[in-house]
């Protein structure tokens, strides 16, 4: 396909845990065999609970963590094997917006320095042009030129997140990976930032990978969603399809757990038993079988593969296995 912007193939990220000098290391399989592709101009969502590997997936694509194995094709080029310096250059096209607007801006720098830094690092424009760009972008994200000489601590969470977004957009990247960009914000500020993201996408023709645990926000903003559980994608579908008719038992439980929107709304809730198992020693077979309501014998031994169904969605569950 010509309009595929990013293709992730069998991505793995395992973190080693030292168990002591003479013992073998154990591994946390934070991301295990994850494959998906992102089309130009779309918003691709990754949802899941804490510890499912959604943030690690985002960071590994940008190689903020080195990947264990797999391929990441960006515009047809494999960026997983680039040297450090080449990767740095490639990041001009791939930017990230982080969750915590308090920790992701350098407190010692003015907003002007924060916004011109990416341009300077990539050797773009003259000093004067860079400052013009910064003045332009700060207006675009809804702040004022007079804010440029202030420091991050002078801003509220929502304003800081706008600055974080401005810093990513100023390079005019093709892809922005947004890792929980609105989770730390208050409800009334959340919707402002979501509107900003939607508007920037239109204006700059951006592609987003939107990582979040908030099902409502993901439903609103994304075109396709991947649901992750313990390092694997369990379901991947168009957003409408996924929310209308979730197929994987985990997706069904996750969607049913979302708080209702009105007190009279019917609650048809699947309450999952227990907690997410430890990723150091995930259950055998399907990692969800310990909490699954429709667990079968095969689930305990065999890992279900992500299979593509007739309507284009993919599910990793033995219930839908064609055999």
């Amino acid at each position: 396909m010509s309009n595929t912007l990013l293709e992730v193939k069998r991505l793995k990220k395992h973190f080693a845990i030292n168990n002591g000098l003479f013992k073998d290391k154990s591994y946390v399989k934070a991301v295990d065999n994850v494959s998906f592709s992102v089309m130009k101009g779309e918003t691709f969502g990754i949802v899941g609970e804490s510890g499912c590997g959604k943030s690690t997936t985002g960071r590994t694509i940008l190689r903020l963590n080195e990947l264990t194995s797999g391929e990441v094709l960006f515009d047809g080029q494999d960026i997983s094997t680039l040297s450090y310096e080449d990767m740095r250059k490639a990041r001009r096209k791939l930017q990230m917006v982080f969750q915590d607007p308090y920790a992701s801006l350098n407190p010692k720098k003015t907003i002007r320095q924060i916004l011109t830094e990416p341009l300077r690092v990539h050797g773009l424009f003259t000093k004067k042009e860079r400052e013009e760009k910064a003045a332009e972008i700060i207006e675009i994200v809804g702040l004022h030129v007079s804010h440029l000489d202030r420091y991050p601590h002078e801003f509220s969470g929502g304003q800081r997140q706008r600055i974080g977004i401005a810093r990513a957009v100023i390079l005019q990247p093709d892809l922005i990976i947004a890792d929980e960009p609105v989770s730390a914000l208050d409800v009334s500020i959340q919707s402002q930032v979501i509107n900003l993201l939607l508007r920037l996408q239109m204006d700059f023709n951006l592609t987003y990978i939107f990582i979040s645990h908030d099902l409502g926000v993901v439903k609103h903003i994304t075109d396709r969603v991947a649901v992750m559980y313990l390092g694997r994608i369990v379901e991947l579908a168009k957003t409408e399809d996924l929310y209308d008719q979730p197929m994987h038992p985990y997706t069904q439980a996750l969607l049913s757990a979302e708080p209702i929107r009105h007190p009279d709304q019917k609650r048809d809730r699947i309450i999952l038993k227990g907690d997410v198992p430890s990723p150091v020693s995930p259950p055998s077979g399907c990692t969800f079988h310990t909490r699954c309501v429709s667990c079968m014998e095969i689930c305990k031994t065999e890992i279900p593969l992500l299979e593509i169904m007739e309507d284009g969605r993919s599910v990793a569950c033995h219930l839908y296995n064609k055999m």
């Binding site: 609970e49 804490s50 645990h213 099902l215 439980a253 996750l254 049913s256 757990a257 979302e258 708080p259 809730r269 309450i271 999952l272 907690d275 997410v276």
Partner: peptide, 11 residues
């Protein structure tokens, strides 16, 4: 807490 755990606690 995560949504599935939130549902348990609210219950």
């Amino acid at each position: 807490l995560d949504v599935t755990i939130q549902a348990q606690i609210l219950d």
